[in-house]
């Protein structure tokens, strides 16, 4: 961590349960009560059937790397380089952005299985991805 705090979410009336769940170390998604579609990012209406009724479901925390970037040029004081940011496609469907805790060989690959771990920051706990040793590379 640098001297400057990293940006953190400003929960609103839609997103507060999502961020509170992350502070409990749970990655949650909304699931429509009408059509059961899982949706993300957080929003009040199901874009599939336009129902306002939903539950929160807890993700199993497993997915695969859909894309990623290794950041080399420091653009923000809170994020010393290099670091890797992953877009993981979770088993439940949504794609989630989080940093990759660098694997032993230092590399990231598309298709690599990952699972969620948690980091506590001053304002907000956030997920990070780590290679999922229980599942071989696809």
């Amino acid at each position: 961590m640098g001297d400057v705090a990293r940006p953190y979410p400003r929960p609103d009336r839609d997103t507060t349960p999502f961020w509170e769940a992350q502070n409990r170390h749970e990655l949650v998604f909304q699931r429509c009560k009408q059509c059961e579609a899982v949706r993300y990012p957080v929003g009040p209406l199901c874009p599939r059937c336009r129902s306002f009724d939903f539950d929160w479901v807890v993700s199993g925390g497993r997915g695969t790397v859909h894309s990623y970037t290794v950041v080399h040029h420091q653009a923000h004081p809170a994020f010393p380089v290099p670091y890797t940011v992953v877009l993981a496609e979770m088993d439940e469907g949504p794609r989630v952005i989080a940093q990759l805790r660098t694997p032993p060989d230092g590399r990231c690959e598309i298709g690599m299985p990952v699972r969620v771990e948690w980091e506590d920051h001053p304002h907000q706990s956030l997920p990070v991805f780590v290679p999922d040793e229980d599942r071989g590379s696809t």
Partner: peptide, 8 residues
């Protein structure tokens, strides 16, 4: 969903 993770 992006900035807190360093995607800035």
């Amino acid at each position: 969903y992006n900035l807190p993770h360093g995607l800035v």
